[in-house]
């Protein structure tokens, strides 16, 4: 028995740190995504429609007094980027539920792999999808006539902010998945949450022109923090302090929910 323990301890040292394990788990999810590219394309249909439809429909709102931007499509595109990151990450948890419905989750949880790696690996692969989507949404926006005066840094900020939105709401989705263990419950909860997150924000409308309570709601909305940071960083003379402030809020929120969702593994294990 002593030898058994010794072997176990030795291989424990070899079983890799958090980074190595995260890379393995990320690889698993990226491979699965790569095998169904249609899914990424599918999640783009919606933002494309939003962009082109709303871009046309609300073209005139920029003429409202107090609306600082001159082109609605340029105003809308960063918002749709964040909305896409939010909407598609809401589905992240469905992969966990698929794993739970099979025995994959239980096998993983009885292996030496760290919970943090299981969570981070899935979120990293999700963030990769978000980056691809962000670039494609920008491409559609630019094709539809959006122009930005800022330098390339604005695009980088937008991409990072969209990844954070994707990671934060992917975490929440995973946490809800671990707690409810039901596909229907997850989708229902997310649809219920994503609508107010989209409309209590500056995604489609300058909140200063909306009722006061919308402006208040937007102030506490992580999706809006990302939208504000992105839009600001894309202007000719960005207010970097605002970008940094909103970026840090978003980062703090993302880390907080990622931590919470990793804790949700415990709740899941208590109920199995």
């Amino acid at each position: 028995m002593a030898t058994m323990t010794a072997t176990a301890v030795r291989s424990s040292a070899r079983s890799g740190g958090l980074a190595g394990q995260t890379a393995m788990i990320t690889g698993r999810w990226l491979r699965a995504q790569y095998r169904s590219p249609a899914l990424i394309a599918f999640t783009l249909v919606q933002p494309a429609i939003w962009l082109l439809l709303f871009g046309q429909l609300f073209k005139g709102v920029v003429k409202l007094p107090g609306f600082s931007d001159s082109s609605y499509i340029a105003f809308l595109t960063p918002g749709i980027v964040m909305m896409t990151a939010l909407m598609s990450s809401g589905w992240a948890g469905t992969t966990f539920i698929t794993d739970m419905e099979r025995g994959v989750m239980d096998r993983m949880l009885t292996s030496p792999v760290r919970r943090g790696a299981l969570m981070a690996g899935q979120l990293l692969s999700n963030a990769t999808t978000t980056v691809i989507q962000t670039i494609l949404v920008f491409a559609i926006g630019l094709a539809a006539g959006a122009r930005y005066d800022g330098n390339g840094l604005g695009y980088v900020v937008t991409i990072v902010a969209s990844m954070l939105v994707g990671t934060a709401f992917g975490s929440l989705s995973n946490a809800v998945a671990l707690l409810t263990r039901q596909q229907e419950a997850l989708i229902g909860i997310f649809q219920f949450v994503s609508l107010p997150l989209t409309f209590l924000s500056s995604i489609m409308m300058n909140p200063k022109l909306a009722p006061h309570w919308v402006e208040v709601g937007a102030r506490f909305n992580p999706v809006d923090w990302a939208t504000v940071a992105a839009r600001q960083s894309l202007t000719a003379n960005p207010d970097w302090s605002s970008v940094t402030r909103h970026g840090l809020y978003l980062l703090a929120f993302t880390l907080f929910v990622a931590y919470l969702s990793t804790r949700a593994f415990r709740t899941y294990q208590r109920s199995v």
Partner: peptide, 13 residues
Amino acid sequence: LAIGYVPQKSSSD
């Protein structure tokens, strides 16, 4: 590390 577990439900991806 010492055990292998084959759950009731299929555990492959």
